[in-house]
């Protein structure tokens, strides 16, 4: 019954993580606000579901996905697999094709399953009255994380400074902000923060540390970190880009419709039968 032990242990630690939040919420609710929230029983049951759900989610991930993902990250970065001489100090960044592909694919896939992103996009769809689609937003964020982690992997391989990339990212984000529709901006900024959580961090961090440990001249301490930072800047760009794309497509559709309805009758008559 190792599994059951594991579930109970994770449930216990999750409880302790949640304890301060519950204490603050209930402390303010009963000492400051001094009134019962409506449907208290349902809320307490909801907390129970969240706790149980997170516990099962974490145990399942630790059983099924994290070990595989981490082993995979190690194997893909192994000099023997890449086919380079481990003792050579010269790093050819083009030899790491599968690493970039894995980085992008796993960044995308883990982001789609990220519970905090699901929460934010559900709320966004609800608040916008369906104008922002939860699925579209999540896909846009996932594409951003995929690009970010792949470029982050390239950065570790090439050994260029982290700060340059992040600052260039900021410049792009600022430029995009001034062209975006104002409604999407707060959401885009938020999506940078929610991507790096339960599912994404362990696998992506393992990839970064594996890369830094096997590439000659890289230090896991200096180069291994920082993939997370990529995963939080790039989604902002992709969400702002998604907004431009969506509004461009709306305009084009409208323009096409107008064209279609404004075709004058005589021209059609001149067409040969």
């Amino acid at each position: 019954m190792i599994l059951l032990d594991h579930v109970i242990e994770t449930a216990w630690t999750t409880m302790f993580d949640v304890l301060p939040i519950v204490a603050i919420l209930f402390g303010f609710q009963f000492l400051v606000l001094r009134r019962r929230p409506p449907r208290l029983g349902r809320i307490v049951a909801g907390f129970g579901y969240v706790l149980l759900g997170l516990t099962l989610f974490l145990v399942g991930l630790q059983m099924a996905l994290f070990p595989l993902g981490e082993t995979m990250a190690r194997q893909l970065t192994d000099p023997a697999f890449i086919g380079i001489d481990a003792t050579s100090m010269i790093v050819d960044w083009t030899a790491y094709g599968w690493v970039y592909a894995f980085a992008a694919a796993i960044g995308f896939a883990t982001t789609v399953a990220e519970p905090s992103l699901i929460a934010v996009s559900m709320k966004a769809e609800e608040v916008s009255g369906g104008a922002i689609s939860a699925r579209g937003l999540r896909l846009a964020v996932a594409v951003g994380v995929a690009a970010g982690v792949a470029i982050g992997a390239y950065r570790i391989v090439s050994g260029t400074p982290l700060a340059w990339y992040i600052m260039a990212g900021y410049v792009v984000v600022i430029a995009q902000t001034f062209r975006a529709s104002p409604m999407i901006v707060p959401l885009a900024y938020d999506s940078g923060g929610v991507t790096t959580s339960t599912v994404t961090v362990p696998v992506v961090a393992a990839l970064g540390l594996g890369l830094a440990a096997t590439i000659p001249g890289r230090s896991p301490l200096i180069d291994g970190f920082g993939l997370i930072a990529f995963a939080s800047v790039f989604p902002i760009m992709s969400v702002l880009g998604y907004d431009r794309l969506a509004s461009w497509m709306r305009h084009r559709k409208r323009a096409l419709n107008e064209d279609a309805t404004s075709i004058p009758e005589p021209i059609r008559k001149e067409d040969p039968p």
């Binding site: 579901y49 099962l56 145990v59 709320k123």
Partner: peptide
């Protein structure tokens, strides 16, 4: 377990965390 856990989490979100 991951699938069941995610489902319960989302259910609990709408019942507990969001309304509170």
């Amino acid at each position: 377990m991951v699938i069941l856990g995610l489902t319960l989490f989302i259910q609990g979100l709408e019942m507990g965390l969001f309304p509170l």
